[in-house]
Amino acid sequence: MTATYVYGLVRAEAKLPSGLDGLGPSGRVGTIAHQQVAAIVSDVPTDRPLGTRDDLLAHERVLDAVAERTAVLPMRFPAVVEEDGVVSELLAPHQNRFMEALARLDGLVQFNVKGRFEREPVLREIAQADDRIIALRDQVSGQPEDATYYDRIRLGELVVTAMQQRRDEVGRRVLERLQPCAEDISPRRLVEPDEVVNAAFLVGRDRIKKFDDALDGVARELAGRVRFRLVGPLAPYDFVPED
């Protein structure tokens, strides 16, 4: 059996950018079409397991490059199909569903926005707004860690709670500003208390500038308190149909 690596799906008439560099031994990236839909494919390394850093980067690189010019449904890494099965198992049975999703994503790309508090100024702001924090801080300072374990937990809890209140407020404000420039938003879970926003935005190619300006605007307003990170344009990883 020969296996085929599938990066994602495009409409059969879509033109892929030239010079795509895949993860297989040949490095070649091509398409296998069935009626209206096509799979972006390459060969699969047979002498080693998949999942190296280069494999991950190649998967994303191919998809993002395709997404820059045409609608693409990105697969989750890793997507390997038996070669004979690309048409009979993947494309033919799911063609309608794929075409609907591609139509919905037409002209759209994904941007990821992350915002994080500038820790030091925000911590200072929080401490100065709450006498209990100052008092606990004075109490534990210079004391051995063992002796102040519970006081330090209490201190941290006050700080983290205050930070989460602030981030809810600020995060909402950021989303409200970006929402009008995006077709859809997929929020991701915030892990750390100083994470303000982490979301994927589906943006029309003709509105990228507008989206970018909106982010710049809100970033300027929050300068010194929040720093932002914008990644894109990306393939719409967060906006594929659920299974």
Partner: peptide, 18 residues
């Protein structure tokens, strides 16, 4: 992006991973 998001179809074969 690519391990957590993206389309999953039941026809994919299991491959050994790192």
């Amino acid at each position: 992006l690519i391990l957590d998001k993206g389309l999953v179809i039941d026809v994919f074969v299991r491959v050994s991973l790192v």
